[in-house]
């Protein structure tokens, strides 16, 4: 407060700011390092000048400062190579170790053999059958979790009485491992599809529910205040402010749930199933079809990766406004 009561040194009239081309030079003045484009864009209703800093400009400036104006295609190619380098290295080691006899080729066959086994499984139609069985189960459970957990989470986050009523039960269940409940689901729903789908649903519902609740609860209060000041009632406020503000947090929950859906399903399929990737792995291991087992494992990794990529792209569509 004391600072504000002291008179500041009068600034030169903003109109006297240097013309556009001199803008970069101005930044170097030690006395005014924080000078922004605001200073220049003064004139009455004058159109803003082109040199206002933007995210894109900063990016190009960065490249300029680095001294190398790389064409974007080459830069992206380099990034791809850079990222896949570790994978290629891993594949090479996997191929080499069994071949030089460092590991037992019976238990860890070379990668090429596994890929060949994978291809055979694909041609025989077996892989597709198991893949399909798993996909239907995980998508059903995951989809149900989205449909039920998001509305429930919104209600819990928005209505305090609902939250107070439900939170002890929720607290209890979220701390109960889904895996521990699988026998219960099997007892109640039998060994068929239902128990597996319910199991996946249960595991997926928690991250979505909890993230939705926190997404609604952590909406910037100032935004709510601002919307209220413009006369928005509770319904419009929810629709136009709370929901869009919560979307990124909800998506974090959905992506987590997507990973869980595959993770827990494989477990359920290993415990009791007649099809599915989890069953494939378990079955091939029992029958000593080791390359087929690895082929199943690789397929699961690929499925998980695919799921995550898909969800990421959906997320990006819904939250283009985020800084990252």
């Amino acid at each position: 407060m004391a600072d504000d009561t002291t008179l500041t040194v009068p600034h030169p009239a903003p109109d006297s700011a240097a013309p556009a081309p001199a803008a970069p030079a101005r930044r170097k003045e030690p006395a005014q390092p924080e000078r922004t484009a605001e200073t220049a864009a003064v004139g009455p209703a004058g159109p803003p000048r082109g040199d206002v800093p933007t995210a894109d400009d900063k990016a190009t400036n960065f490249f300029r400062v680095a001294g190398k104006r790389r064409p974007p295609v080459a830069a992206r190619l380099l990034a791809v190579v850079n990222r896949s380098l570790a994978l290629v290295l891993l594949a090479g080691i996997w191929e080499a170790l069994p071949r030089i006899g460092a590991v037992d080729a019976v238990f860890v066959p070379p990668l090429s053999e596994i890929l060949a086994a994978w291809y055979d499984l694909l041609l025989s139609g077996q892989l597709l059958e198991h893949f399909q069985a798993s996909l239907i189960r995980s998508l059903s459970g995951f989809g149900m979790a989205i449909l039920l957990a998001i509305p429930l989470g919104l209600a819990i986050g928005w209505y305090r009485p609902v939250a107070e009523f439900l939170s002890p039960v929720l607290e209890l269940f979220r701390n109960t491992s889904a895996v521990a409940l699988l026998p219960v689901f099997i007892l109640i729903f039998g060994l068929g599809e239902t128990s597996k789908i319910v199991f996946v649903f249960y595991a997926c519902a928690w991250p979505i529910l909890l993230n939705t609740v926190s997404g609604v609860r952590t909406v910037e209060p100032l935004l709510i205040k601002s919307a209220r000041s413009m006369g928005l009632g509770p319904v419009r406020l929810f629709q136009k402010v709370i929901l869009p503000a919560a979307v990124p947090t909800i998506f974090t929950g959905i992506r987590l749930a997507g990973a869980y859906s595959i993770l827990v399903l494989i477990f359920a399929e290993m415990v009791g199933a007649k099809a599915g990737l989890g069953y494939l792995i378990q079955d091939t291991q029992f029958n000593f079809r080791i390359p087929d087992m690895y082929a199943g494992i690789i397929t699961i990794s690929a499925l998980g990766l695919l799921f995550n990529l898909l969800l990421l792209s959906v997320e990006r569509r819904f939250s283009t406004w985020r800084t990252t």
Partner: peptide, 26 residues
């Protein structure tokens, strides 16, 4: 509150998921 009064806050209170134009349309 009502639309006969408009408030401008210190921390802007713009909706980050809306463009400049869409914010003004709010």
């Amino acid at each position: 509150p009502g639309l006969d009064r408009g408030i401008v806050f210190q921390q802007y209170a713009l909706f980050p998921w809306r463009t400049a134009l869409a914010n003004i349309e709010f």
